[in-house]
Design a protein around this nucleic acid. Structure first.
Ligand code: ZN
Ligand code: ZN
Length: 799
DNA sequence: AGCACGCCGACT
DNA sequence: GTCGGCGTGCTC
């Protein structure tokens, strides 16, 4: 038998199948999806089996496959097939996709060890210590020494493929004898055998509870490993090593399994349509457009129940940022132990454990962020993507996949419906619903009949600022005071899109920039340094302008910390919680802040975008947006859409409970349509208006887009290659396709590489995929000049 | 991607 | 003569 293997070598030339002979002793362990170790040239690498045949086209002699790593193939045949389709569409190597589908611990760790070649060499002092990893040796003298040893046949190289995945094991003790035997043994024991008697007593009294774990026995009976070992040698107990899962959710399940909330008419209507598709096994995509508070989550949970009732499983994706303890608790309360949660806050070991529970079919519902779309869940009856407009569903680094597209693929594979939910659907999804590609379901009432909050705009051009800074208007501060006097709570959002704490000299206008990239350095107060967010460059905070030596330097861009200080000055005694990347970096701190605010241990929650997501605090009656405009300054074609989404979402945080809600939005552009329509919370009108803008600008969803980025050490090389690609595309593409560029990218230099980009907008180009693959291949030749090319299908950002 | 192989100039 | 630089081609 022959295995077709994709090897763990990410390169154009190795991005294909390599075949290996399967030794007969491995035949029973191997299957499609197996993770294996194979010889590859002089070394050994990890790989994945994507096919098994008995015929080979290969002319040479096939090598033997060396190891099958896992007992159960980590990839299902479905995922193997998906990886092939995806590789074609997103211009990524197949191995990269296969790896993205699996927990990080399944990536191999390679070591290249220098080992003695004979008994005499083995006695050398060099080989007495830790093994020598040649990949880690940098000392030139050592390298020379080793080379000599290799030449003299005193040493040889051993390639090692290490598995990072460690299963947590625990010893379990089971009864080795019949129940009746133990009292007899008890009577023969010596008087001073205290521990032994204790153990036998427990066995006699609680025989049904066995097997018991080592930690259990140690804790309950105060036994030591020694006394347990003697029980084994005496033949009372048998020891076995059992795999245990780390349980990251133990804190979330409050035990009581809540029953479903009754749905209102609209919710029920939506549910009925989804249910029908589940039952009739239709791979239909629904767009559930529901205003904030309309109870979309309830519809999802009901639909998941329906799928489970049909004996099928369910997959639910939520944005990383909304995968909050609140959210997890809600799902766990409904479906209990059958839920697996894949979350970036879990440790790598915990992720691996959760993932294995899914792979073994021990869970029926999977909840997770983007990468959970690859969960090895079988027999899927429903897929849900909540907040489908979120750009985080598109991965912005190498396998640039969009979880929505993957979900559509899987929905077709399983013949199950896909539900995309949002209060502010992405324009593309909404347009597809208009053309009946998706099935539109609308929820227009708040489920609890509460009124939408009143939204007012504060025009920062004609306003008095409170305090000495230009961040908080008198109007906003007064409104906060009023709420605090009534013992109500306030959420304040600082929009930080495209904004940062950079250093500006007031004398000469100098802005401190990164030496490697074309961006300004950001002030980090926690580490008291200036940092580059693109390459990680760090330098001390200057006290004088590096250009003119003036001491008149300022740090611009309102940070949450600065606003917090202002608030403390303007509202003495107010208790303020701050939530941003700095205060949520530590594990669990996010939950801590929210719990504290929920318990009314603070009056004001001040934060960045991350507070805009579905947090629900009944006592919050005022939401303030400190700066609505920053997003609009970005000249990306979807800047208005993103701003509208953010404002609508944050406004939804107010007045969810029985108290009337108020939203105040500070802006320099009160006449901008995105802000005007966010004020009236009118998604449908925004959709209509924005579609006109996109039509006029020839942008998505009227056109498909592909972004080609070209990077090189020398700027002219990047530019030259970019123009060459443009000419090539020009020759092969036709009306109404539009090719924009090449232009230097918005951040024209990152890590000392210059970036140029070309944007292709098209309606129908059947050959485009092939052309772009050709562009990618031809770049391989250009690699000599230090060129690299990245192709992003349907980019989220083009600037 | 790594790694070997081979060719060429530079240094014991 | 041999060491080490890099260009070229291959990995089942
Ligand atoms: Zn200056
Ligand atoms: Zn940088």
């Amino acid at each position: 038998m022959i295995a077709q293997v994709i090897v763990d070598v990410a390169a154009r030339q190795t991005d294909r199948i390599f075949e290996y002979h399967i030794p007969t002793e491995l035949e029973k362990d191997i299957a499609i999806g197996s993770r294996v170790v194979v010889p590859f040239g002089p070394r050994k690498v990890q790989g994945f089996v994507v096919g098994i045949t008995d015929q080979s086209e290969f002319k040479g002699k096939l090598k033997d496959l060396l190891v099958v790593v896992d007992e159960m193939p980590p990839l299902t045949p479905e995922l193997v097939k998906l990886s092939a389709d995806l590789a074609k569409n997103i211009f990524s190597y197949r191995i990269k996709i296969l790896q993205a589908m699996l927990p990080w611990v399944m990536r191999a760790n390679y070591r290249k060890l220098l080992v003695p070649a004979n008994d005499r060499a083995a006695k050398m002092p060099l080989f007495q210590g830790d093994p020598i990893d040649l990949n880690k040796i940098t000392d030139l003298a050592e390298i020379k020494q080793f080379r000599k040893l290799l030449q003299d046949d005193q040493a040889k190289i051993e390639y090692v493929v290490e598995n990072r995945a460690k299963k947590k094991k625990e010893n379990q003790y089971e009864l080795a004898l019949k129940k009746e035997e133990y009292p007899k043994i008890y009577n023969t024991l010596r008087q001073n055998a205290v521990k032994q008697k204790k153990l036998l007593m427990d066995i006699i009294d609680n025989a049904a509870d066995y097997p018991k774990s080592q930690s259990q026995l140690e804790k309950q009976l105060g036994l030591t490993a020694a006394s347990l070992n003697s029980a084994i040698t005496k033949g009372w107990l048998n020891k076995k090593s059992v795999e245990v899962y780390r349980d990251p959710l133990s804190g979330f399940d409050d035990g009581e399994h809540k029953t479903a909330v009754t749905l209102n008419g609209e919710q029920q209507g939506a549910l009925n349509q989804i249910t029908q598709a589940i039952e009739q096994r239709q791979a239909e995509t629904f767009l559930l457009e529901g205003i904030t508070g309309s109870g979309k989550t309830e519809v999802y949970l009901h639909a998941i129940s329906k799928a489970l009732k049909q004996g099928r499983n369910a997959l639910m994706l939520v944005p990383e940022i909304s995968l909050t303890p609140q959210m997890v608790r809600q799902v766990k309360a409904r479906f209990g132990q059958e839920v697996a949660v894949l979350h970036s806050a879990l440790s790598e070991g915990e992720k691996y454990d959760e993932w294995r529970r899914i792979r073994r079919g021990e869970t029926k519902v999977v909840v997770g962020a983007r990468s959970a779309v690859f969960a090895p869940l079988d027999n899927i009856g429903l897929i849900v993507i909540d907040e489908e407009h979120e750009s985080s569903y598109k991965q912005e680094t190498d396998p640039r996949y969009n979880a929505r597209d993957v979900a559509i693929w899987r929905s077709k594979f399983h013949n199950c419906p896909l539900v995309l939910g949002s209060a502010t659907p992405s324009l593309g999804s909404r347009a597809r619903a208009q053309k009946n590609v998706y099935h539109l379901l609308r929820l227009t009432e708040r489920a609890n009949q509460k009124k939408l909050p009143k939204v007012n705009l504060i025009d920062l051009k004609h306003v008095q600022f409170a305090g000495g800074q230009f961040d908080l208007s008198v109007e906003l501060v007064d409104a906060i005071k009023k709420r605090l006097a009534k013992k109500e709570q306030v959420i304040l959002m600082l929009n930080r899109r495209g904004f940062a704490n950079f250093m500006l000299c007031r004398e000469c206008g100098f802005v401190l920039k990164c030496p490697n990239c074309d961006v300004s350095l950001n002030l980090h107060k926690d580490t008291n340094s200036m940092q580059c967010h693109y390459c990680g460059h760090t330098e001390p905070v200057p006290t004088r302008c590096p250009n003119c030596q003036s001491s008149q330097i300022r740090f611009l861009g309102a940070g949450t910390q600065k606003v917090q200080e202002e608030l403390e000055e303007l509202l003495p005694g107010a208790r303020i919680l701050r939530m941003d990347v700095d205060t949520t970096r530590r594990k669990g701190s996010y939950k801590k802040i929210l719990d504290s605010f929920g318990a009314h241990e603070a009056d004001i929650l001040l934060g960045t975008q991350m507070i805009a997501k579905g947090l629900d605090f009944p006592n919050v009656t005022l939401v303030g947006v400190i700066n609505a405009d920053t997003g609009l300054w970005l000249s990306d074609y979807n800047a208005s859409e993103k701003t509208f989404e953010l404002l609508t979402q944050v406004a939804g945080r107010a007045g969810r409970a029985d108290k009337e809600g108020e939203v105040l939005i500070q802006t320099y552009n009160p006449e901008h349509y995105a802000i005007q329509l966010a004020q009236t919370q009118d998604y449908e009108r925004f959709y209509g208006y924005e579609m006109n803008m996109r039509h006029a600008g020839n942008y998505p969803p009227y056109f498909y887009t592909v972004l080609i980025s070209i990077a090189a050490k020398k700027e002219q090389n990047a530019a030259r290659e970019a123009f060459r690609i443009k000419r090539y595309l020009n020759e092969h593409l036709h009306e109404p396709t539009i090719i924009l560029g090449p232009t230097p990218s918005a951040i024209s230099r990152v890590k000392n590489q210059y970036y140029y980009q070309i944007l292709v907008k098209y309606k129908k180009e059947p050959n485009l995929n092939e052309l772009l693959h050709h562009v990618q291949d031809s770049a391989q030749e250009a690699k000599k000049y230090g060129l690299s090319i990245f192709i992003d299908n349907e980019p989220e950002r083009i600037m």
